[in-house]
Design a protein around this nucleic acid. Structure first.
Length: 589
RNA sequence: GCGCUCGUAGCUCAGUUGGAUAGAGCAUCCGCCUUCUAAGCGGACGGUCGUGGGUUCGACUCCCGCCGAGCGCGCCA
């Protein structure tokens, strides 16, 4: 958009003044404070300093070499050497008209498409999906949508927890205390009950623990009965997952669970041993520190009583079983061989950060050449805390089930829709409530910075005012309402003879619209969907002000056409922006 | 104990290469529907950005100390 044109011209001007300057360091960004201008560059200050030049005169020189009269009304030099650009309404109008013709306005496809594997959601078999799963699922889905919108190749993979020691306990429970009727009615609840009962017994009684381990050993050895039961547990769990994902509108290209990699684990450990990456220790096989990092930042070391001692990444237990480290190594290996990605993104709880550090370092030692070609990226996120500020407890039962949360959201939304729009047919009200309720939940989860913990509250999760999905969806319905009432089609093909961006609220809206793509790029770069939330919230706010101050249908001629175009573009950016967050819009609310 | 993360308005949170007078929502108070949906808009109130130093043209942002909170430190995942 405009900032790119300005940036290119600024880079040219800088190079004209300082031929050996690095143009890549000269960036033009939207002004944080629009009172200073529309776009700004702070790069000249740093550059002048680097060259021991006086920044103000240097900025003057650059400005003199700058040819942006066609794009800008003014280029100001402020403070120590900020360059502030105020774009020309004509230039803005040209961009709007050109972009209106495109399917996704303001979002140029990347000229460097990358292949990105995104690993997210990853629920466990035999456990209900609870509110905690919304974080990985929502962030991961938003990321895959944003990357796709920008033109990257995305492979989404749901690495479900369908293998591991918990199946020993589950199998024991299945064989001894399974309630068939309960399994028929609520399979996940029954599986969860089995696990809890047996787990408690195992904690108290070593004999039970040993029994569970034996079931696990039989499963791992391929015992027919245990395999059949295990597959049945996966089947009923997958049915639950499919139902939740269907409701959330989340799709995966692949669902390759942990068990998929079982056949390769033995060979991988063998290879790690052969290459000297891993070694035996106390009957197990592990990867130890190679001493290349200072102890403080070496994940293979841990401090105990003032001493740094080995904290290896075990890839084979002394009983011969494998760990999730082994599975994760096999997974990277498989993904690289199968898809040749430039990057693998893991959307997983921050608490697993040490595991991923070990995993990535181990892989780099195992396959150094391959590791150089791929960026392994753990995208962590904080916990959801209860309203009392304490973390949700997974085991002790007081977690909110994801399905219940969604149902509650839709119920509350239905009440509001019915109150606001009683004349709509019930089916339509329910559909609106589904979209609004679901949107509210997803949006609320994506809004906080992903790194920080956030406090769950029904009130906040389902709020309809302020920085929420319903607010944005409402802005969209206002756009649609205008077109419904006018009977005119959204433009795009029908251009006004001349765009007249004159009113301050028209200009502010237009200037914000053209930054859509820039925001998406930042989201992709930092893997922070909340930047998009905030962009869209600002957009909706600017539209609301425009809506108050600039009547559309009462206007005439070019003014009317201009406003209709702004409405159309706003509606489309809201719709596509929300879609990138996995949120739908409606025609009416 | 060691490591990681975090301390921003009464509450919940934003704050995009370090940028200009730190922003929202909720709550409280005051205005605005004979006008395209008021799920809206405008305004008021509210801050020594935990604290003390440092780096520099400039620090909520980077570095160090201290205080406080959370998490991690299983042959679980």
């Amino acid at each position: 958009m405009l900032h790119l044109a300005l940036q290119a011209k600024l880079q040219a001007a800088v190079c004209a003044v300082l031929p050996d300057a690095d143009p890549a360091a000269i960036l033009v960004r939207p002004c944080l404070d629009t009172r200073h201008g529309d776009y700004q560059s702070n790069a000249l200050i740093a550059l002048a300093k680097q060259r021991k030049l006086n920044p103000r005169p240097f900025a003057e020189q650059v400005r003199a070499a700058l040819e942006v009269a066609d794009l800008c009304e003014a280029v100001d030099i402020a403070g120590p050497g900020f360059l502030n650009f105020r774009v020309h309404p004509m230039a803005l109008a040209e961009v709007l008209q050109a972009e209106a013709l495109k399917e996704v306005p303001f979002v140029p496809k990347t000229n460097q498409p990358r292949t990105v594997v995104i690993d997210f959601s990853s629920p466990n078999v035999a456990k209900p999906m609870h509110v905690g799963h919304i974080r990985s699922t929502g962030i991961g889905d938003a990321l895959q949508r944003v990357f796709r919108l920008l033109g990257h190749r995305v492979i989404s993979d749901n690495h479900i927890g369908d293998w591991g020691t918990q199946f020993g306990k589950l199998l024991l429970g299945w064989k001894q205390i399974l309630d068939r009727d309960a399994l028929g009615r609520e399979p996940i609840a029954e599986l969860e009950r089995l696990y809890k009962v047996i787990n408690t017994e195992c904690d108290a009684n070593p004999t039970r623990l040993e029994e569970a381990k034996q079931e696990l050993v039989k499963l791992q050895a391929g015992d027919a009965e245990n395999i059949a039961v295990w597959q049945e547990m996966i089947r009923v769990s997958q049915r639950q997952f499919d139902s939740v994902y269907g409701r959330l509108g989340v799709k995966f290209d692949h669902t390759l669970g942990e068990s998929f990699y079982n056949p390769q684990l033995g060979a991988i450990v063998g290879d790690l041993l052969a290459r000297g990456v891993a070694r035996e220790s106390e009957g197990a096989v592990g990867v130890f520190s190679d001493g290349s990092l200072p102890p403080k930042s070496d994940p293979f070391l841990v401090n105990r009583d003032g001493e740094w001692v080995a904290d290896p990444a075990l890839v084979r237990k002394s009983d011969g079983g494998f760990n999730y480290m082994t599975t994760d190594l096999a997974t990277i290996d498989y993904r690289l061989r199968t898809w040749s990605p430039d990057e693998i993104i893991y959307v997983v709880d921050d608490r697993q950060a040490p595991h991923f550090r070990k995993l990535f370092l181990t892989f780099a030692r195992w396959q150094p050449e391959a590791a150089q070609r791929v960026k392994l990226n753990h995208i962590g996120f904080g916990k959801i805390l209860g309203e009392d500020g304490r973390p949700f407890k997974t085991r002790s039962g007081d977690t909110v089930k994801l399905e219940d949360l969604l149902a509650e959201a839709e119920e509350r939304a239905l009440k509001v829709v019915t109150e606001k729009n009683p004349d709509l047919p019930e089916a339509q009200r329910k559909e609106i409530a589904r979209i609004v309720g679901l949107g509210a939940v997803k949006y609320a989860d994506l809004l906080p910075n992903r790194q920080s913990d956030y406090q769950f509250s029904w009130e906040k999760m389902l709020a309809l005012q302020g920085n929420t999905a319903p607010y944005l969806q409402y802005a969209h319905t206002r756009v649609r309402g205008i077109f419904r009432k006018s009977g005119e089609q959204a433009s795009g093909s029908r251009q006004p003879a001349e765009l007249v961006l004159a009113a301050p609220d028209e200009l502010a809206l237009a200037k914000h619209l053209i930054n859509f793509g820039l925001v998406l790029e930042t989201v992709a770069e930092e893997c922070r969907p909340n930047f998009l939330n905030n962009y869209l919230y600002e957009l909706a706010g600017l539209f609301a002000r425009f809506y108050e101050s600039c009547p559309v249908l009462k206007a005439e001629g070019n003014e009317r056409a201009t406003r209709l175009l702004l409405c159309d573009l706003t509606g489309r950016v809201l719709k596509q922006g929300l879609a990138a967050l996995g949120i739908e819009v409606t025609e009416q609310m």
